[in-house]
Design a protein around this nucleic acid. Structure first.
Length: 598
RNA sequence: GGGGCGGUAGUUCAGCUGGUUAGAACGCAUGCCUGUCACGCAUGAGGUCGCGGGUUCGAGUCCCGUCCGCCCCGCCA
C-alpha cells in the first residue's frame, strides 16, 4: 500500500497521527538544512518537511527531488508553528514531518510549467496532455464532467430510463453532416459510417417497446471545427414513447435542474423561458439567443417610411425590413470606430450600417433624411439616452436579423453588458423545412424524422403530389411548422429534439417532400420504414451536447477544455499523431487505392 | 473554400525605418542557505528566429510560397 491518506484532506484534526502519502513533487524549497516539498495528488497539496532532526536519510534523498518526481512519504502530521500557517491552501495549517521518503519515479524537466500563471500554448498543452491534465483547473473540469454525467444517469434511472448502447459501425445516410467512413474488409467496396447520432436506432428502440431510452454516447461529424465543435463529441441522447413536447421539456428541465444543483449547488428556475423561433428571430436575430441581456432588435419600418432615406424606403418597398439596436454609451465612438463597425456589418452580410448618435441632439450622416420628431420617436423606441447610438440595418428579413443578431452579441461583449449566470431557454415552433437554393430543394431543418404539427400533417396529406419535390420555394411548404425544440444556454445551442413521425405513410410523404424517391428511401431508410409499420408508438426525444453543457458549467471558452484528448482545428491529435498514413498492406486488405491530389 | 491573428532560448514574450556578438523573465544545471510556501543568494549552460525560395553588400526584420496553431464566415439535418 502506497498511501492511507490523500494530500488534500489533511487538517489539524489529524495532528499527531502518522500518515503515508503518495503523489507528485509540485514545488521544492531547499534551505539546505530544511527542505520543504509541496506534495500534490488529485485531492490537493500538502507541505512536507524534510529535516535532518527527523530523518537524516530522508533529508539527504530530498535534496535530489525535482519537479514532478513521483514519491511516497511517511511521516507525522503536525500543526505548523506559529506564524508559518499558509491560508492560501486548504491544508495550510498542517505539515508532514517526513521520516521516510521513497522516490517511485523521476521526471525529466517539464516542457511547460504547471503553474496557472504562465499559460503554455494550446498546441504544447495538447501534445503533452498528460501534463496539462495534472493542473488543478483541468482536474476540476473533469470532476465536474463526471458529476454531470453521473447526475444525468441517476436522474434518468430514477425516471425509468434504460441506458442501451447502439452501434458505432452503422449505415451512412443522406442528409445532415458529412460522415466518417470505415471500410469493410469482409465486404470489399462497402463502408460503415460512424454515427452522427443514434437517431434511427433510438427510434427503433421505441418500436421495440423499450419505452424510455437514454445513452451518453459519442457522435461523429466530419465538418469544420469551432471552439464549440469537435469531430467527435458526446451527446446525452434521450427518447421516450407515448410522449409529447411538454413532457420532454419538463423531463429535461428536471434533469438540468438536478445536475446544476448536484454539481454546482445552483438552483435554476423550475420552468425555463420559452420563445418561439419567430420571436427569437424578431427580438434577438438568432435561433439561439443569449437572453441574459436586452439590446433587442427593434422594428423601425413605420418610422423609416416617414423618411426620405432611399436605402430604408427601398428595403421596405421590396418586402424587407428596417430594424435597429441600441449601442449603449457608443455616441463617443470615433469615425474610425464606426467605420470598423460598418466593416463588421458588411462581413455579416449587410450592405451598410446606418447610425444616429444621441449627443446633445441627433448626429448622423442620414439625419437630413429624417425630421427631428421622427428621430425622437426612434430614440424613444429603443430607449436611447444622451451618449447612446442607434444602429440600423435595412435589408431582407434574414439579413437584418443575422447582422443585427451578431452585432448585438459582439457589442454586448465589448460593452461588457452580459451578466454572469446561467439562463436556459427553449426555442420552439421551428419551421419544418428549409429551402436550399443551391440544390433547389427543401431540406429538413431538424431532421427528416421530425413530426410536423398536427395541422401541418393534415395539410401535408391534402397537398397535391406536384408540390412534393418542387424545384422552387413554396410559401405553403415554407410555412409548415415542426414539433421541434432546442435548448439554449447563454447563447449556445446545448440541445435539440423533436416529436418524431411514427406513421409510415407520413414518413414516406416527408421523404418525398425532401425530394427523396421511394426507391432511395427504401434503400437508405428501409429498416426504419419497415419498423414503423409494426405498431410504432408515438415517440419523441432530445439530444443534449454534454461537452458544451460542461464547458458552460465550468466557464471555459472552448469545448476542448472539457475533453480529455481533443483535436485541433485540422482535426488532428497532436499527442498521438492521428490521423496518419497507413501501411500499403492495410490498404490492400481493404481494397483501397489512394487517389491523392497533387 | 474564404477572412483575421500568431510561430524568436525548455516556456512566456521583447526585438523600431534591414546593420556589429539576437535580449528579458521564468525554468534548467552547479554551489550556499533550518521556517519557506512564486523561498533567497551566487555562478553557468541554453537559439536551424516554423520551413523553402527570393531581394540586398547585409534579412529575425522586406517579398513570394508553404506548414502548423487559434478565432470567425461558409459548412455543422
Amino acid at each position: 500500500m502506497f498511501r492511507d491518506k490523500w494530500c488534500g484532506e489533511l487538517r489539524d484534526t489529524s495532528a499527531g497521527s502518522n500518515v503515508n502519502l503518495a503523489g507528485w513533487v509540485f514545488r521544492r524549497r531547499d534551505h539546505g538544512g530544511l527542505i520543504f516539498v509541496d506534495l500534490r495528488d488529485r485531492s490537493g497539496i500538502v507541505q512536507v518537511v524534510f529535516s535532518p532532526d527527523v530523518s537524516v536519510e530522508a533529508h539527504g534523498l530530498a535534496h535530489d527531488l525535482r519537479s514532478e518526481f513521483v514519491i511516497s512519504v511517511q511521516g507525522e502530521v503536525r500543526c505548523r508553528p506559529e506564524g508559518t500557517v499558509n491560508t492560501d491552501i486548504a491544508t495550510g495549517r498542517v505539515e508532514i514531518y517526513a521520516s521516510k521518503l521513497v522516490v517511485l519515479n523521476e521526471s525529466a524537466p517539464l516542457p511547460f510549467t504547471l503553474e496557472d500563471a504562465a499559460e503554455a500554448s494550446e498546441m504544447l498543452r495538447l501534445k503533452h496532455r498528460y501534463l496539462d491534465m495534472r493542473r488543478p483547473e483541468l482536474q476540476r473540469n473533469f470532476i465536474i464532467r463526471h458529476k454531470a454525467a453521473k447526475g444525468v444517469r441517476d436522474y434518468l434511472d430514477e425516471n425509468g430510463f434504460l441506458e442501451i448502447e447502439t452501434p458505432m459501425l452503422t449505415k451512412s445516410t443522406p442528409e445532415g453532416a458529412r460522415d466518417y467512413l470505415v471500410p469493410s474488409r469482409l465486404n470489399p467496396g462497402n463502408f460503415y459510417a460512424l454515427p452522427q447520432s443514434p437517431q434511427i436506432f433510438k427510434q427503433i428502440l421505441m418500436v421495440a417497446g423499450m419505452e424510455r431510452y437514454f445513452q451518453i454516447v459519442k457522435c461523429f461529424r466530419d465538418e469544420d471545427l469551432r471552439s464549440d465543435r469537435q469531430p467527435e463529441f458526446t451527446q446525452i441522447d434521450i427518447e421516450m414513447s407515448f410522449t409529447d413536447q411538454s413532457e420532454v421539456l419538463e423531463l429535461v428541465e428536471g434533469m438540468i435542474g438536478r445536475v446544476f444543483s448536484d454539481v454546482l449547488d445552483i438552483s435554476l428556475e423550475k420552468k425555463f423561458e420559452v420563445l418561439t423561433y419567430k420571436d427569437a428571430m424578431e427580438r434577438f436575430g438568432s435561433d439561439k439567443p443569449d437572453v441574459r441581456f436586452g439590446m433587442e432588435l427593434t422594428d423601425m419600418a413605420d418610422l423609416a417610411k416617414a423618411s426620405s432615406f432611399k436605402v430604408f424606403l427601398d428595403a421596405i418597398e421590396s418586402g424587407g425590413r428596417v430594424k435597429a439596436i441600441l449601442g449603449k454609451g457608443m455616441a463617443g465612438l470615433s469615425r474610425k470606430d464606426v467605420d470598423m463597425l460598418t466593416e463588421d456589418a458588411k462581413a455579416f452580410g449587410a450592405k451598410g450600417l446606418a447610425w444616429i448618435k444621441v449627443k446633445g441632439g441627433f448626429e448622423s450622416p442620414i439625419a437630413k433624411f429624417f425630421t427631428e420628431e421622427i428621430m425622437k420617436q426612434m430614440a424613444e423606441r429603443v430607449k436611447a439616452e444622451e451618449g447612446d447610438m442607434i444602429l440600423f440595418v435595412a435589408d431582407t428579413d434574414s439579413v437584418v436579423h443575422n447582422v443585427l443578431g451578431r452585432m448585438r452579441l459582439d457589442l454586448a461583449k465589448k460593452l461588457n453588458l452580459i451578466p454572469e449566470g446561467f439562463k436556459f431557454l427553449w426555442v420552439t415552433g421551428f419551421p419544418l423545412l428549409e429551402w436550399n437554393d443551391d440544390e433547389k430543394r427543401y431540406a429538413a431543418m431538424h431532421h427528416p424524422f421530425t413530426s410536423p404539427t398536427d395541422e401541418g400533417i393534415a395539410k401535408m396529406l391534402q397537398m397535391p403530389d406536384e408540390v412534393f419535390g418542387a424545384k422552387s420555394e413554396s410559401p405553403e411548404l415554407s410555412s409548415l411548422t415542426a414539433k421541434a425544440y432546442d435548448l439554449v444556454l447563454n447563447g449556445y445551442e446545448v440541445g435539440g429534439g423533436s416529436i418524431r413521425i411514427h406513421r409510415k405513410e407520413i414518413q414516406r410523404r416527408m421523404f418525398s417532400l425532401l425530394g427523396i424517391s421511394d426507391e432511395e428511401a427504401n434503400e437508405k431508410f428501409g429498416f426504419l420504414l419497415d419498423a414503423l409499420q409494426y405498431g410504432a408508438p408515438p415517440h419523441g426525444g432530445i439530444a443534449l451536447g454534454l461537452d458544451r453543457l460542461v464547458m458552460l458549467m465550468v466557464g471555459a471558452a472552448s469545448i476542448r477544455e472539457v475533453i480529455a484528448f481533443p483535436k485541433t482545428q485540422k482535426a488532428s491529435c497532436v499527442m498521438s499523431g492521428a490521423p496518419s498514413v497507413v501501411d500499403q498492406k492495410q490498404l490492400r486488405e481493404l481494397y483501397i487505392k489512394l487517389n491523392l491530389p497533387l
